[in-house]
């Protein structure tokens, strides 16, 4: 590490440069430097003095911090996935909301959970978390809970969000090209201006989703669910392969397995032979619906209005059903199941 490199860093930073991918700052003295939001992907900070440095929201993915002094450093919301922190001094460092994954190497005895860091992995619980303007491209977040999460203007190219819960998530202006959103719940999500070209949204739940201004060229929407409250881009011709969920809708034989259909009004709908296995129909209205021959194995029917529904040969095995008040009270009293 020579002084000239530091001078170059200063000069470029002042000129507005924020992309320092792969820069070699091994052994540098950067204590008290403010480098928030700077892109240091793959940079080398080995043995560097980063005491009290500000790396808030910085991209430190794959960066090397071996034996670096990070005491008192601000690493909140920084991306530390696949970073090497072995031997680093993290005393008093702030790491709340910093991202990590299974390949992040921490100092011995360090617990990222105690530091309130966020683990980005399949099935992660990241509800309501602030992940805006992040480069999360290619990340596998299968079945992750991102309900209410802030993902505005994020780089999500090729991200795997299969079966993820993105209920009410804010994803406007995000790059979701070639994202895997199969069977993802995008109910009430705001995707205004997002780029969904080439994305796979087969079976995704788009009920109440705002897709205004989205780019949907080459987007696979086969079997996706939408309702009258779904807002598509202006002039978009909704393909017939999508399922329109509305009172009296014809959904004969549709595959709605695992779908979150909470509070949906499907009164009088034709769901004969439909696959609703493990669907969440909590609070939904299926009054007078035709469910003959439908598969509701393990479906959540708590609070579902089934009055007048045709349940002829309907598979309700392991379905979660609430009982009428007096019956439930009796079950509770006797300690027995119905």
């Amino acid at each position: 590490m020579n002084l000239k490199t530091l001078e170059h860093l200063w000069t470029a930073f002042v000129e507005g440069e924020r992309d320092f991918t792969g820069i070699n700052l091994a052994g540098a003295d950067l204590n008290h430097w403010s480098l928030a939001r700077v892109d240091f992907w793959g940079a080398d900070f080995s043995r560097a003095n980063l005491t009290q440095a500000n790396f808030r929201r910085a991209n430190l993915k794959q960066a090397q911090f071996s034996d670096a002094k990070l005491s008192g450093a601000d690493l909140r919301w920084a991306d530390l996935r696949e970073a090497v922190l072995v031997g680093a001094d993290l005393d008093s460092a702030r790491l709340e909301g910093a991202l990590y994954n299974a390949r992040t190497q921490f100092p011995k005895g360090f617990n990222p959970g105690e530091a309130h860091m966020w683990n980005l992995e399949p099935g992660a619980t990241l509800a309501t978390k602030d992940l805006r303007e992040r480069d999360l491209g290619g990340t596998d977040l299968t079945a992750a809970d991102l309900s209410g999460a802030l993902l505005v203007n994020s780089q999500l190219f090729g991200v795997v969000l299969k079966k993820a819960n993105l209920l009410s998530a804010l994803m406007g202006d995000s790059d979701l090209r070639y994202a895997d959103l199969r069977q993802a719940t995008l109910m009430l999500a705001d995707l205004r201006g997002a780029d969904l070209r080439g994305a796979d949204l087969r079976g995704a739940n788009l009920i109440g989703t705002n897709l205004r201004g989205c780019q949907l060229a080459n987007t696979n929407l086969e079997g996706a669910l939408y309702s009258d409250s779904t807002q598509f881009p202006r002039g978009f011709q909704v393909p017939k392969t999508l399922h329109h969920l509305a009172p009296g809708a014809s959904l004969w034989g549709a595959d709605l397995s695992g779908a979150r259909l909470t509070g949906v009004d499907l009164s009088g709908a034709n769901l004969a032979g439909a696959n609703l296995m493990h669907a969440d129909l909590w609070g939904a209205c299926l009054a007078n619906a035709d469910l003959s021959g439908a598969n509701l194995l393990g479906a959540n029917l708590l609070g579902t209005d089934l009055s007048g529904a045709n349940l002829n040969q309907t598979n309700l095995m392991q379905a979660i059903i609430d009982l009428p008040g007096e019956r439930a009270a009796m079950v509770s009293f006797n300690g027995q199941t119905a």
Binding site: K4, E7, H8, V14, H32, W33, S34, N54, R56
Partner: peptide
């Protein structure tokens, strides 16, 4: 807050 603790006028452009 996102600027480094350095005054641009202190930078030696001749070095750069």
């Amino acid at each position: 807050g996102d600027r480094p603790l350095v005054d641009p006028s202190d930078i030696d452009y001749a070095v750069a």
